[in-house]
Amino acid sequence: MNIILLNSKRGHSRTFSLPRFLPLIALGVLVALPVLVGVGAYWVSYRVAPPSYTDAVAERFQANLRAQADEVVELKRLSEEQIRALTLKLADAQARLTRLDALGERLVDVAGIDSDEFDFGAELAVGGPEPAESSAFTPPSFMAELDALTNTLERREQQLNILEDLLADRHLENETFLAGRPIVQGWMSSRFGRRTDPFSGKLAWHEGVDFAGKDGSDIVATAAGVVTYAGKRSGYGRLVEINHGNGISTRYGHAKDVLVKVGDIVRTGDVVARMGSSGRSTGPHVHYEVLKNGRQVNPHPYIYRARR
């Protein structure tokens, strides 16, 4: 290879001859130099800078893996314990539901209610259109059992609440049902209606029924109600008056002692007074009246009818 140099001032040229292998040497230098620089930089960084992966890093990574594995085992143990506890609670709830059904059926039988109206063994009648999202998530069978049990308990609760209301109404109706005599021991000494007045000897209208008996014997309420009068009243002596609702009231006159006060709630058969001869009376007895909408009516139909 020849190199020619030209001199513009003097107007002559000069030629230099180069060896033929010189371009190959230059090319080799240009290729080898970057490789050598890269290898040198790698060697320096490896010797001077600490390596990114060491035995300590590996040990720390393995320790994290072991801790995570222990946490998974503990979570599995806790989950199994919770599932066992839920299973026991589910079994207990099912047993309680069985007893609740038996109680409901017994109450229906005792109350004399049509079993078709309160069938504790039948499924709850429900329905509705299919949801738009038919691909909804389906819970596991255990959760489905819990949901079914919850729905059944809610249905039983509704049925028993309604049954309780019906029984309470029936019990209240039975308690306020007027029937029987206002005494425990004694006899009827004067009937309702026209009679000869024991003081004047003239015909008079008797607005109640008299029951004679032993002085101080019990006078009882013939139905449940609220005491609206308890004290002395002209002609009656010591009087107890009870409001039974639905426009029905009863009066118990000529008592020796009054055992209740206004506002007291009494039940059927409660002792409200002691038999005496207070007021316009010829001897120990109770003057018994039945009032309907404020007017005296014949007590005989109430006295002789059977109690519910």
Score class of each variant (00 low, 15 high):
Ser134Arg: 15
Asp109Trp: 13
Glu175Ala: 11
Lys256Thr: 02
Arg47Met: 08
Arg181Thr: 12
Trp187Asn: 13
Gln94Gly: 01
Leu6Thr: 04
Arg106Gln: 15
Ala49Thr: 13
Ser13Val: 07
Thr196Val: 14
Ile162Trp: 00
His206Leu: 14
Asp109Gln: 15
Thr176His: 07
Gly112Asn: 11
Arg84Asn: 14
Gly38Asp: 01
Gln68Ala: 13
Leu153Cys: 08
Gln296Ala: 14
Arg195Pro: 02
Gly208Pro: 00
Gly128Gln: 12
Gln62Gly: 03
Ala125Phe: 11
Thr222Asn: 09
Ala67Val: 12
Arg238Ser: 05
Leu97Phe: 01
Arg308Gln: 13
Gly263Ile: 04
Ala221Lys: 01
Gly28Asp: 14
Leu203Arg: 11
His285Thr: 06
Gly11His: 10
Leu78Val: 09
Tyr46Arg: 14
Thr222Ser: 13
Leu160Ile: 11
Met275Lys: 02
Glu207Asn: 11
Asn298Leu: 06
Leu30Asp: 02
Ala58Tyr: 10
Ser278Met: 08
Asn298Ala: 06
Ile162Phe: 00
Pro50Leu: 07
Ile219Leu: 10
His206Arg: 08
Pro23Glu: 06
Thr282Tyr: 00
Pro23Phe: 06
Asn293Arg: 07
Arg156His: 14
Thr87Asn: 14
Ser141Glu: 15
Asp215Leu: 11
Gln62Met: 03
Leu18Thr: 13
Glu154Lys: 12
Tyr288Leu: 06
Asn293Trp: 13
Val73Arg: 12
Ser8Lys: 08
Gln185Gly: 08
Phe118Ile: 02
Leu163Asn: 01
Ala67Lys: 12
Thr15Glu: 15
Lys76Ala: 04
Leu167Gln: 02
Val35Asn: 00
Glu81His: 02
Gly121Trp: 05
His12Asn: 15
Leu86Pro: 00
Val262Leu: 09
Ala26Ser: 07
His171Leu: 13
Thr54Ile: 11
Asp197Ile: 03
Thr222Gln: 12
Glu207Ala: 15
Ala32Cys: 11
Thr282Trp: 01
Phe177Gly: 00
Phe21Ile: 10
Leu291Gly: 00
Leu6Asp: 04
Trp187His: 14
Gly225Leu: 05
Gln296Lys: 07
Pro198Asp: 10
Tyr236Pro: 02
